[in-house]
Write a protein that binds this DNA or RNA. Structure first.
Length: 343
DNA sequence: CCCTATGATTAGAA
DNA sequence: TTCTAATCATAGGG
């Protein structure tokens, strides 16, 4: 609408070209009043005022008339020429900005914290449940962990929905502007470069909003993290079962108590703790055992017996599966003798 | 309270 | 990088 007005006034300014098409009812009076500038301005004002009263259909009709005017191509080429001259000055304004280091830093942090990027473990609740199930019984540490994860997931969700909203708004706005420019390009010359520039400006504006979002998300994660670390400082002992599993492994590999990465992972899963906790445990255990072997002798014997008993139980269970009434399933030999079973 | 056990953190070595 | 060794900070028992 605004552009139409400009177009119309522009044309009238170029020697009343539009008047025959526009159908100005006051054209006669206007010609008469050429010698009186005040009167002329009054007419123009009236015309302008009249435009605002026009219905959309009328405006559309005017636009169409304008586009079909016989002088239009000539005018258009003149405008193109003018544009050609002025575009050089516009080009100088164009600035090239490399990826903002600030936003890159924020991106990296969000990625590292698992807020952006691919979803890990498919949500906090599922992950916590999986951890609890793997560990047999849910430990305090896993509860705290799940709490942290839940909070992080919440932040993550908000971040993503906001980001999506911004992106949608940005593309919508860009589309709108592009359509507007395309529409305008029928009546005034617009180079693709200009459209590109416009889009870049819009994107810059929106990315500055995104940066704010990223910044506040980072802050939220930092606060959550510090609170979680504080909570973690309240050390919880591992549950009995976990300690047993770890000790069993330790004493049955006493000659080389260095579990491989895979073994650590399995132990972690069995105990419902993290791999680094397993590493910490073995680190502590090795050094403390080495420092005072005597103190741990009793424990060592206990676990040596335990593993032996467990082994016996395993074979006993295997035999019981076929004859549950077996009273003394002591050794492998008795098992073999009482049951002709494949183990 | 104190004392010991124990999980976590750290610097530095391998 | 992982591992050691020292150390910190808390849990838990008396």
């Amino acid at each position: 609408m605004d552009d139409q007005t400009r177009m119309l006034t522009g044309l009238t300014g170029l020697g009343g070209l539009s008047q025959p098409d526009v159908g100005d009812p006051d054209s006669v009076r206007k010609q008469q009043s050429l010698g009186q500038p005040q009167q002329d301005i009054g007419d123009i004002l009236q015309q302008i005022m009249a435009i605002t009263d026009e219905s959309l259909d009328e405006a559309q009709a005017r636009k169409h008339a304008l586009n079909c005017h016989r002088m239009k191509p000539a005018l258009f080429s003149v405008l193109c020429e003018i544009k050609e001259k002025t575009v050089l000055s516009i080009r100088g304004v164009q600035e090239e900005d490399p990826p903002d280091p600030q936003i890159m830093r924020l991106d990296n942090m969000l990625l590292a914290e698992g807020v952006s990027g691919p979803e890990k473990g498919g949500g906090s609740a599922a992950a916590a449940a999986a951890a609890a199930a793997a560990g047999g019984s849910p430990t305090d540490s896993s509860i705290e962990h799940s709490d942290y994860r839940a909070k992080l997931a919440q932040i993550r969700q908000i971040y993503h929905s906001e980001l999506e909203k911004y992106e949608q708004a940005c593309s919508e706005f860009t589309n709108h502007v592009m359509n507007l420019l395309r529409e305008q390009s029928r009546t005034r010359p617009i180079s693709p470069k200009e459209i590109e520039r416009m889009v870049a400006i819009i994107h810059r504006k929106f990315s500055s909003i995104q940066m704010q979002l990223k910044q506040s998300t980072c802050e939220a994660v930092m606060i959550l993290r510090s609170r979680f670390l504080d909570a973690r400082r309240k050390r919880r002992n591992f549950n009995k079962q976990a300690t047993e599993v770890l000790n069993e492994y330790f004493y049955s590999h006493l000659s080389n108590p260095y579990p491989s990465e895979e073994a650590k992972e399995e132990l972690a899963k069995k105990c419902g703790i993290t791999v680094s906790q397993v590493s910490n445990w073995f680190g502590n255990k090795r050094i403390r055992y080495k420092k005072n072997i005597g103190k741990f002798q009793e424990e060592a014997n206990l676990y040596a017996v335990k593993t032996a008993v467990d082994a016996a139980n395993v074979s006993a269970q295997a035999s019981q599966a076929n004859s549950p009434a077996t009273p003394n399933s002591g050794t492998e030999t008795t098992c073999h003798l009482s049951d002709p079973v494949i183990i």
